[in-house]
């Protein structure tokens, strides 16, 4: 069996290389990205926790690795990180369940 997978942790380091195929847009993205994660109305720590939750929701393995490290570096503990993931999961689960209103509406219209 091949040990190749779609996701290679080493590829995280190549993220900056996306400018190779479209430099202008790539550069603009990284300028914006770096601005987003600076200390602002929210602390870097708070932003890292939000990013960690979103990383799980969008199921990006690179982002999970990157923002687990960033969350730990910025002083989050395990409990806070898991609570952040629960927040993401609750919104994702809640969003699925919220669609059930449409199902219920349809059932009620049909019967």
């Amino acid at each position: 069996m091949s040990d190749k997978t779609y996701f290679d942790p080493k590829d995280l380091k190549k993220f900056g290389d996306i400018t190779e195929f479209q430099e202008k847009m790539g550069q603009k993205f990284f300028t914006w990205y770096n601005e987003v994660f600076k200390e602002g109305a929210l602390t870097v720590r708070e932003k890292n926790l939000i990013a960690l939750a979103v990383a799980h929701v969008v199921q990006c393995p690179y982002c999970i690795d990157a923002y687990t490290t960033a969350s730990m570096q910025s002083g989050c503990d395990e409990e806070q990180m898991m609570e952040a993931v629960h927040v993401g999961a609750a919104i994702k689960g809640g969003a699925t369940l919220a669609f059930s209103v449409q199902m219920m509406n349809h059932v009620k219209k049909m019967s």
Binding site: M72, S74, G75
Partner: peptide
């Protein structure tokens, strides 16, 4: 740090 990672911003950590 309690593992194989570098410390974050000292002032932010201090505040927390």
């Amino acid at each position: 740090p309690s593992g194989a990672f570098l410390p974050g911003n000292q002032l932010s950590l201090e505040a927390e």
